[in-house]
Simulated assay, not measured.
Amino acid sequence: MVKSELEKLGLHFTNIDLGVIEIKETISKEQKQKLKSNLAVSGLELLDDHKSILVDKIKNVIIEMVHYSDELPKVNYSDYISEKLGYDYTYLSNLFSEVKGITIQHFIINHKIERAKELILYDELNLTEISYRLHYSSVAHLSNQFKKVTGQSPTFYKKIGKKRKSNLENL
């Protein structure tokens, strides 16, 4: 899709990677605007300022770490994110808060709770295993954070999920 839009505008690229395009020539304001609007039609967004790109990279590292890795990093999150992106964590943290309006820590917690919800509903792991997999120090720590974010205990969330599932099956 992105290739096609670049070709329509007569732009030549050296590399198209997830979230990054390297264009050979200098792109005019008109070409940039046209590319931006054409990508928007398909639900894609053109990020062209350094801050937005870096914040997007931070989000991607966290999402990959929490949702797509079976084992969270052995080092703390700040070191992991800093290593992955090659920037000082304080800089990344300040930038993220400035652009997103929440801290990296809150973003991580929100994603860990979303992942916990998925794992609870899959019903393949117990809470002890889920808390271990998501790097919580204990089930109590997971439960407290879960309740703070969702307003429900993990056990109650599981009951409601099972009820919804059985209601759907009875339709």
Rank of each mutant, 00 (worst) to 15 (best):
L127N: 01
K100F: 06
A140D: 12
K74D: 13
S143N: 03
V99P: 07
V99Q: 02
Y122K: 15
D88K: 09
S97F: 09
K57S: 13
L72Q: 11
N38C: 08
Y136F: 14
E118R: 13
I109F: 05
L85C: 04
Y68M: 07
E30S: 12
Y122V: 12
V75T: 15
I120W: 00
I63P: 01
V61F: 10
I62L: 01
Q105D: 14
N94V: 07
I53A: 12
G86H: 01
F107W: 02
F156V: 15
K162E: 14
K36W: 01
G161R: 09
R164D: 09
E114F: 11
K84V: 02
P73I: 01
N126L: 01
L54Y: 00
E45F: 14
G101Y: 06
N144A: 11
Y91R: 12
V41H: 11
D79E: 15
I81W: 03
T128I: 04
Q145I: 04
L39P: 09
Y87V: 07
K51D: 15
I58V: 11
G161N: 12
H135G: 15
H135Q: 13
N38F: 06
D49Y: 09
L119F: 03
E114P: 00
N144I: 05
K112N: 04
Q152E: 14
E114R: 15
F107R: 00
K163W: 06
V61G: 08
E30Y: 05
Y122G: 13
V149S: 02
V41D: 11
N60W: 13
L134I: 06
Y77W: 06
D70C: 04
K147G: 00
S131H: 04
I63E: 13
Q33E: 15
D88S: 13
L142K: 03
Q152A: 10
R164E: 13
Y122M: 15
H106V: 11
H141I: 08
H67D: 10
G43R: 01
V75D: 13
D48S: 14
V55H: 00
D123T: 09
V75C: 13
I160F: 14
I120D: 02
Q31N: 14
L46E: 05
L47W: 03
K57W: 08
I160K: 15
K59H: 07
A140V: 12
D49R: 09
I160G: 12
E129G: 03
Y77G: 00
N144D: 12
V99C: 00
L92T: 01
K57F: 08
F96H: 03
A40T: 07
R115D: 00
H111Q: 05
M65F: 00
S97G: 08
I130R: 01
K59W: 06
K112M: 07
Q152K: 15
I130G: 04
M65D: 04
L134M: 04
E71W: 05
I104W: 00
F156K: 14
V75Y: 03
S78H: 03
S93Y: 12
D123M: 09
D88E: 14
R115C: 00
V61M: 04
K29R: 10
H67G: 13
T150L: 08
I53P: 14
K112G: 05
K74E: 14
K147P: 01
Y68V: 06
D88G: 07
N144M: 10
